[in-house]
């Protein structure tokens, strides 16, 4: 029996670590060389959620943008979930992630969303304060991650998968 599949899009400004998060989650690899993503990379992984069963996440790693243009909108079609990614060391990237979520609502009104604050390994240089995150947690799941060390990465995808399985 084929596991049900859900399309998940990674959204966030350039350089926040979307591709690295996907690489860590899908292949448990990491490269510290920054390479701009052009277009989209699609990967999939089955997640065993226990009681609800297995869910296949089809993850779209979309090129980083601060605004959603027509091209990005076309990539979003059919998505059930969004992983919004911000870089903890760049507070502006958090505002971008929130903006992208609001823009995506025009085509994905009901998509589940989880906010990832990446680069936990550089926490001493974070501009995003704990009080800001506490405020955001009132409205959506917020998970701090490090693609470099792997901290929080599995948890972030799993959190979204659980919400998509409901």
């Amino acid at each position: 029996m084929t596991a049900p599949a859900r399309k998940v899009c990674m959204l966030g400004d350039f350089g926040v670590g979307k591709t690295s998060l996907v690489a860590r989650y899908m292949r448990n690899t990491f490269s510290d060389t920054y390479l701009t993503t052009v277009g989209v990379k699609v990967d999939s992984k089955e997640v065993d959620l226990g009681e609800p069963g297995v869910l296949k996440l089809v993850v779209w790693d979309i090129a980083g943008r601060s605004v959603l243009d027509a091209l990005n909108m076309s990539y979003l079609r059919g998505a059930s979930g969004l992983l919004l990614v911000a870089d903890g060391t760049r507070e502006a990237s958090l505002r971008t992630a929130i903006d992208l979520l609001l823009q995506s609502r025009s085509v994905l009104a009901d998509a589940e969303a989880v906010l990832i604050i990446n680069k936990l390994d550089l926490v001493e240089r974070w501009e995003v304060g704990p009080s800001t995150l506490a405020g955001l947690r009132q409205t959506m799941p917020v998970i701090e991650t490090s693609a470099l060390s792997g901290d929080g990465v599995e948890q972030a995808f799993l959190e979204l998968a659980k919400r998509l399985a409901r």
Partner: peptide, 8 residues
């Protein structure tokens, strides 16, 4: 008809 440019 759906166009998806630059797919890996």
């Amino acid at each position: 008809t759906i166009d998806l440019p630059f797919v890996h």
